[in-house]
Design a protein around this nucleic acid. Structure first.
Lengths: 155, 155
DNA sequence: GCAGTTTGTTATACGTGATAACATTCGATG
DNA sequence: CATCGAATGTTATCACGTATAACAAACTGC
């Protein structure tokens, strides 16, 4: 029952394990792909010292200037508590401004600084290259949209 | 350049942020989908107190009995160092055996115990249900295979 | 004005992945 | 056989991401 025939790969060779079932798992492949993609992201963005989460914050703030921390955090699925250090870090680098709102003195309204916008443009270039590379791997733009649609349904 | 017009959704409403670009990112969607899938996994497997990584180890060992720790770890993309506690945990629960190999006294050969096999059968049932649920969300078996193929290319 | 809620914040804990160092053992080569 | 390099399992440690609890300040609704 264990040793299989020619229908599947042999599992007695030293090289590849029999991983039919294990690697067929959606969750497993999802995790592997995500780790791989993030790893490539980290490599490409190393020169900018920018992490994926930070990039997504900059993009979202750029597209939604003046929003509160909580709103940006919630939109990205990040807990308020965990967002604090993230925002403070970007602020310390001069990329992000946290302006106090007159109508609500608790809230911080997020804006990009001038250099934040310049920095983001640079980051966007890098990211576009990365995304193009992914599209190439996937085999075309239509495959990319298909992937995004499928991932959406899982979320 | 920054404020856009009617071509995209308005971003002044209180509900949804403008997230065209941010949410269009492959890495971002991948991360969100992976978190969502893992969360569902954790919920379903809560009764068994089994984590995703542990499940994948049991499956792989079941299909490749007698392999060394390093081999199983490498096949799952887990570092040797991080695999130790994982394997010891499964051994402590009586699911896994780590037999010393005569031909190589450094190595541990991994096998499932009898109760490990029973336990795994139970886990496989749960996982099959979960996977079926995913397939349903994806819209069919062919979409599942498409997704797996696309993820494979990204890895 | 008060009660309950929201916002930002700190502290803390857990899980995962990565690296470095180490002892033991193996393999190959002199 | 002796030695050197590599492999194996292990421990300790670190960096990150995520989660919860608690808190002060401020807002909202009654």
């Amino acid at each position: 029952m264990s040793t299989d025939n020619a229908l599947v790969e042999q599992d007695d060779a030293e090289g590849g394990l029999n991983s039919q079932a294990a690697l067929g798992l959606i969750g497993y492949r999802l995790r592997r792909a995500q780790l791989s993609v993030f790893q490539r992201f980290l490599t490409v963005f190393e020169s900018l010292a920018l992490r994926p989460a930070e990039y997504s914050v900059l993009v979202l703030v750029d597209e939604n200037p003046g929003r509160k921390q909580s709103e940006i955090a919630a939109a990205l699925g990040i807990k308020r508590a965990n967002f604090v250090a993230l925002a403070q870090g970007l602020e310390a680098r001069g990329l992000l401004e946290r302006l106090s709102v007159e109508s609500d003195r608790r809230a911080n309204a997020l804006h990009l600084t001038a250099s934040g916008r310049i920095f983001l443009a640079e980051a966007r270039d890098l990211h576009d290259q990365l995304e193009s590379d992914f599209v190439e791997r996937l085999g075309g733009e239509s495959q990319r949209e298909q992937l995004l649609a499928l991932l959406e349904r899982l979320t």
